[in-house]
């Protein structure tokens, strides 16, 4: 059943494939070589940076005065009520003002003000 005809390679490749393959492989080897060279230095720099940062954090932890590091209640200054800002004063006084509508209407009526004219003037 398995004659010599069947043994022939039934697959093919694009033209000049095997002529170009060594160049492709060499290019990939060059890229890999460069990556190996450049890839090693950044890794060392990165690892060194991490080590320095950890050491700095450790030093700062050691040198911190733990007893005085927290905020004490005595350190908080009492707020003086007299030292309020002008804005605070304004808000306090104006928020309490209540506009009395009845008094306003009485005032307008007593002065014979034309309400239609007022409305027209407002919307112009």
């Amino acid at each position: 059943m398995f004659n010599n005809e069947l043994k022939k390679n039934p697959f093919a490749t694009p033209a000049d494939y095997f002529d170009n393959l060594p160049t492709k492989i060499q290019n990939r080897c060059i890229v890999a070589k460069k990556r190996q060279k450049t890839g090693f230095v950044p890794k060392i720099v990165f690892a060194g940076g991490i080590a320095v940062l950890m050491f700095a954090l450790f030093l700062s932890y050691l040198t911190t005065d733990k007893e005085n590091s927290g905020v004490q209640t005595a350190d908080i200054l009492p707020v003086d009520n007299q030292e309020q800002s002008p804005l605070e004063n304004y808000l306090k006084t104006t928020s309490k003002k209540i506009i009395n509508q009845d008094a306003m209407i009485d005032y307008i009526a007593s002065r014979n003000v034309n309400i239609d004219y007022m409305l027209l003037a407002k919307f112009d």
Partner: peptide
Amino acid sequence: DSYFSGDEMQMKLQ
């Protein structure tokens, strides 16, 4: 596969 150059029997074998 455009790069298969075998005949029908070779295709069957594959």
